Structures are given as C-alpha cells and as structure tokens.
Amino acid sequence: MGLGDKISNKAQEATGKAKEGLGDATDNKKLQAEGVKDQAAGKTKQAGEDIKDSFKK
C-alpha cells in the first residue's frame, strides 16, 4: 500500500470525526451521520489495505 493511500484513509477518518463533532455541537443529525459514515469508510478502506499488505509479506 502506498503512503498516499494511508494518508488519504486517515484524512477521511479525521474529517469524519470533525463532522461528527460539529454535528453534535450544532445538533445537526445529518452532519453527524455523515461524519460517522466517513469514519467507517476510512476504517474499512484501511482494513482492506492492511489485508493486501499482509499477503505481500
């Protein structure tokens, strides 16, 4: 897995955390849900890349 993929996945997780926090603070359920979704997507992508890496070793 490339370094760019790792950074992208972590950035997506961080963005999701920020959205979720902002949604909580402003009582915006849509923004909060988007944040949770972004975090899950970033973690899922990272897990897939980790599996790929394990087969390369």
Rank of each mutant, 00 (worst) to 15 (best):
K52D: 13
G42Q: 02
T44H: 13
N28F: 04
L31F: 01
Q39G: 10
A47I: 03
G16Y: 02
A47H: 03
I51N: 05
Q46S: 11
G35W: 01
K45T: 07
G16N: 02
D53I: 08
K43E: 04
T15Q: 13
S54W: 00
D50A: 15
F55I: 09
D24T: 10
K52R: 11
A11H: 05
K30W: 03
S54V: 07
A41W: 04
E13M: 14
S54I: 07
G21P: 03
T15A: 15
T44M: 12
G35Q: 01
S54C: 08
G48V: 11
L31P: 00
G48M: 14
D27M: 09
E13Q: 13
N28D: 15
G48Y: 07
I51D: 11
K45I: 02
D50K: 10
D50S: 14
G21C: 00
N28C: 02
K29M: 11
G16M: 02
K45D: 06
G42C: 00
K19I: 08
A33P: 04
D50F: 00
A41T: 06
D38I: 00
Q32E: 14
G21E: 14
Q46D: 07
K37Y: 07
S54A: 15
S8Y: 09
K10D: 14
T26H: 03
E49I: 09
D53H: 04
K29C: 06
T15R: 12
K19S: 11
K37A: 13
K19T: 06
K29N: 10
S8H: 10
D24L: 13
A47S: 08
A25M: 04
S8V: 10
K10P: 00
Q12P: 05
Q39V: 08
Q12E: 14
S8N: 13
I51W: 00
G21A: 05
K43F: 04
N9A: 14
A14H: 11
A40Q: 07
K19C: 08
G35I: 02
Q32M: 13
K52N: 10
L22D: 07
E34H: 02
D27C: 00
D24I: 05
D24E: 14
G42T: 02
E20W: 09
N9M: 14
A33W: 01
Q12H: 11
E13T: 14
E34F: 04
G21S: 12
K19P: 03
Q12R: 15
Q46V: 05
D27Q: 13
A33C: 02
S8F: 11
K19E: 12
K17Q: 15
Q39L: 05
G23E: 03
A18E: 09
E49Q: 12
K52G: 06
D53L: 12
E49V: 13
K30M: 08
G23V: 01
K43R: 03
K30C: 00
I51C: 07
Q32H: 14
G48R: 06
K29S: 14
D27N: 15
A25R: 05
K45M: 07
D24V: 03
